[in-house]
């Protein structure tokens, strides 16, 4: 049973440096290959902290955490090379000197390792990711002049170029229009169908895939609700578990 486990957290505590109390408390969670997980809950509940703990970007103070078969506490760097993470609240300078293609290629840099140049396989992976997200025409454009939605797509392509075993997304729909949301939802559903697990923090419940998805609700650093739900019921369940009437 353990071989198809993508995320395994057992009694995990995470605290920011200098904080008196842990941000995540006693989190136990298991996510399997190809599972589609939505994480909801109020602001400050610990949703982003959960994603960053899974990525090994925050220090796990207690408990054990294994992602893609790797110990997060000891092999954080390797975990980050296998897991895609689309960050929240990005803001790029309009004149920042990077093209969309260069930003997508950054997704490959960790896997390549130090002192190695991108090879054909890396360029192919970046091209495929841009094709999948539908941004080939933006490849040569400076990222700073793109709209928020286009930048969001570039970041999603960057993480798909990594060919991840697990994709974490933090509010991926926040900058997207309705058409783009539907398009990205379709891509994520397709990815999950290929056995890649998806964990997404979102407050947008209109654009969920047409399949049963697992819903986690976090409150005050704990997972207070964990159940599989039909997309139409997700909003009501998240609201109810978050204490919103």
């Amino acid at each position: 049973m353990t071989e198809n486990r993508t995320i395994y957290l057992d009694g995990v505590y995470t605290a920011y440096e200098g904080a008196n109390v842990p941000t995540l408390r006693n989190i136990s969670l298991e996510v399997r290959e190809g599972e589609y997980v939505l994480v909801g809950g109020p602001n400050g509940a610990g949703k982003t902290t959960l994603l960053e703990s899974i990525m090994g970007m925050l220090k796990i103070t207690h408990g054990s955490a294994s992602v893609c078969g790797l110990d997060v506490r000891k092999e954080g760097l390797q975990v980050r090379r296998k897991v895609g993470y689309v960050i929240q609240n990005f803001a790029f300078d309009p004149l920042t000197p990077y093209t969309a293609e260069q930003v997508v290629m950054m997704g490959r840099y960790g896997i390549m390792g130090c002192l190695k140049r991108p090879c054909k396989a890396d360029f192919r992976a970046a091209d495929q990711a841009m094709h999948l997200v539908g941004i080939e025409d933006l490849a040569a454009k400076p990222i700073g002049i793109l709209s928020g939605g286009q930048q969001q797509k570039v970041l999603i392509a960057q993480n798909l170029a990594k060919e991840p075993s697990l994709l974490l997304l933090d509010e991926p729909f926040s900058n997207l229009d309705i058409a783009a949301r539907e398009f990205i939802t379709g891509i994520l559903e397709n990815i999950a169908g290929k056995g890649i697990s998806i964990m997404m923090v979102s407050h947008a419940f209109d654009d969920l895939p047409d399949r049963d998805i697992r819903v986690l609700v976090m409150n005050d650093g704990n997972i207070t609700y964990d159940a599989v739900s039909h997309p139409g019921d997700v909003e009501a369940r998240v609201k109810s578990a978050s204490g919103v009437v």
Binding site: Q78, R80, K82, I87, Y98, M106, Y109, P118
Partner: peptide
């Protein structure tokens, strides 16, 4: 490649698996 990614966004560099 590591330097240009760190310059672009340090958090993205970390999450890409760059040391």
């Amino acid at each position: 490649k590591e330097i240009t990614t760190i310059i672009f966004d340090r958090k993205i560099a970390v999450s890409s698996g760059i040391n």
